[in-house]
């Protein structure tokens, strides 16, 4: 499918102050493209969750936005540390977030399940010592 738009957003580990800026830009970009409010909301929530995860848990990574006529795709790819037990990480309430993240109101163990709930398709691949890649797509039709 022809890609209409591709944008990459580097996300820095531990950058709590700027966390969410990529999601804000992505939301505005999609709004300008005329993406409907229901899909836009689901993309925004999942995007913010995955961006926060990059800030809270990863050693840094990149968020990629792809838009084609059928769907919006978000890819989060980090450079580690990787998730030892994906099934556990996908459980609501399970979290390894830092106190800093919790002070800001995050780290309740809702992130990954919430991404899965909002996306039309959700895939997570992770290898300890290598990194984690999360791919989410949101059908437009």
């Amino acid at each position: 499918m022809a890609v209409l738009l591709e944008k990459n957003f580097p996300v820095e580990a531990g950058a709590f102050t700027t966390a969410g800026e990529a999601s804000t830009t992505i939301k505005r970009t999609l709004k300008q493209l005329g993406i409907g409010p229901e899909v836009l909301r689901r993309v925004s929530v999942a995007c913010y969750e995955v961006e926060l995860n990059l800030v809270i848990h990863s050693r840094g990574g990149t968020l990629t936005l792809l838009v084609d006529p059928e769907k919006v795709t978000l890819i989060s790819k980090d450079v580690g540390p990787g998730i030892p037990d994906i099934e556990k990480a996908m459980t609501e309430g399970f979290s390894t977030a830092s106190d800093e993240a919790r002070t800001l109101g995050f780290g309740a163990g809702m992130g990954l399940p919430n991404m899965k709930r909002n996306a039309s398709e959700f895939d997570i691949q992770s290898e300890v010592g290598v990194g984690t890649t999360i791919t989410m797509s949101f059908a437009l039709k």
Binding site: T17, A19, G20, S23, T24, K27, P37, R41, S44, V45, C47, Y48, L104, G105, F106
Partner: peptide, 15 residues
């Protein structure tokens, strides 16, 4: 009762 910029950011994402 939480006051930080992420309250607004979260609210923005959710409309």
């Amino acid at each position: 009762g939480l006051i930080n910029p992420h309250v607004v950011r979260t609210s923005e994402m959710l409309d």
